[in-house]
Amino acid sequence: MKKKLFKFVLAIATAFTLISVLPAATATAHADTNNSSVSAIKKRGTIKVAVFGDLPPYGWVNKAGTRKGYDIALAKQIGKDLGVKVKYVQVNADSRVDALNSNKVDIVLANFTVTDERKQVIDFANPYMKVAIGVVSKKSNPITKESQLNGKKLIVNKGTTAETYFESKKNITVQKYDSKTQQFNALKNGRASALADDNSYLFAWVKNHKNYEVGIKTLGPSQYIAPGIKKGNTSLLNWTNKEVKKLTKDGFFETDYKNNLKQYFGSDIKASDIVLAKDYDFSK
């Protein structure tokens, strides 16, 4: 009996040691086997794409249960050009990086904004969309230049790039709200002369609020939406870079804009407010 017990304890101890040592060993052993390389994807016959399921019009599911949106169209095109099937893995905003790093997906096409922090843990391919801060105001009293905001009140949503951008401006009184609903209500109730947020939200909002317009369409540093790829997967990164470049040149994203975004945006918004120009220089 005692002997058996001893063996049991020994086994447990060995198991624990293995658990702590194995990751390091397997990490080196598998460093050169890339499960998400272009050839691996082609061999497998499917590409696993992380997408949103609840963000119309970028990645969502329609009432028939089919995935739709600007990002989904790109995923389909990538699948077509690789000659493989597309398998969608629905993710939330905060699990996009983990999904890549744990090999759950090959590529993330989920309204993924390029930031310096994210660049440290994953790679971004060439961008396929641009977003910036926009400012919405009453049509009857439009604000079209940043200087017009001096001495006025401005509404922002907490935690957005708009908040960070306007916080440092001394001449503007910034009102901060917790949610999108609150901030838009405040604007409608006339609490301030304008509201600043991501332009892609504002474009959709003015569609249903005809008395307002996005007077300033882009402000501050431009931000880009790009496919996310696991760090070190140069094979897929290079392929996607070429693919996005080619698709931009061919006007794919303009068609994508027309099919998926245009109907959600106000009539004064053009494809060029969101989509990169055909001759965009990706080497920048």
Partner: peptide
């Protein structure tokens, strides 16, 4: 389960809420 990408009832519910928001 929606946190790990399982298409469970809550996940589908959120898809429906967002798709019909307008």
């Amino acid at each position: 389960l929606l946190l790990i990408s399982v298409m469970d009832v809550i996940n589908v519910g959120q898809q429906i809420i967002e798709a019909n928001q307008q």
